[in-house]
């Protein structure tokens, strides 16, 4: 993928956002009756104004992209990309599963996997580091700062 293509992806992201604003105003806000009237009742006018402003900027940025020099045609950096994707997958999966597995069951395995992705040598030492990390931080927050970490469906919480 070239840098220019990447820039277009970003512009598409912003354009989708603008469209979402207008779609929500036309559906949800009209249904709730908050898309018209004065400052007291009209919740749509302000986001609409910003969306229009953003839309204008998207236009300018698109023109700039067409005009910009060839330096944008260089490919984006790919080295290490696999590691980044793997990290995001593992971390995302961990967060999705947190409600279900709970902090204490899933955190040490997540930390271990991330360290393996980083290329650390597998072994007992690494497992101990992962366990220490997960439970050490949990101890600081749960014991000292009285935070209750998610227990998951099994309701696992440590009475320190």
């Amino acid at each position: 993928m070239t840098k220019r293509q990447m820039e277009w992806v970003a512009l598409a992201f912003f354009a989708a956002l603008v469209m979402l604003v207008f779609q929500q105003i036309a559906t949800s806000m009209v249904e709730q009756g908050i898309a018209s009237g004065g400052a007291y009742d009209n919740a749509a006018s302000y986001p609409r104004a910003i969306a229009i402003f953003l839309g204008g900027l998207i236009g300018i940025q698109a023109i700039l992209l067409f005009m910009k020099s060839r330096s944008l045609d260089a490919p984006v950096r790919t080295e290490g990309r696999g590691r980044a994707i793997a990290l995001l997958l593992v971390f995302g999966g961990y967060l999705m599963g947190l409600n279900w597995l709970g902090y204490h069951l899933s955190t040490a395995p997540m930390a271990l996997t991330v360290m393996l992705i980083c290329g650390a040598r597998p072994g007992l030492r690494l497992v101990l580091v992962a366990l220490g990390m997960a439970f050490g931080l949990a101890f600081i927050f749960e014991k000292i700062l009285s935070v209750v970490l998610p227990g998951g469906t099994f309701g696992l919480n440590i009475p320190w």
Partner: peptide, 25 residues
């Protein structure tokens, strides 16, 4: 500390810190 150790530790910290705000997954 090597980044291989620091990265998961920071990720866990981000999780606990953000969770502690209003106990929300």
């Amino acid at each position: 500390i090597p980044k291989a150790y620091l990265i998961p530790a920071i990720l866990i910290l981000c999780c606990i810190g953000t969770f502690a705000l209003q106990a929300s997954v």
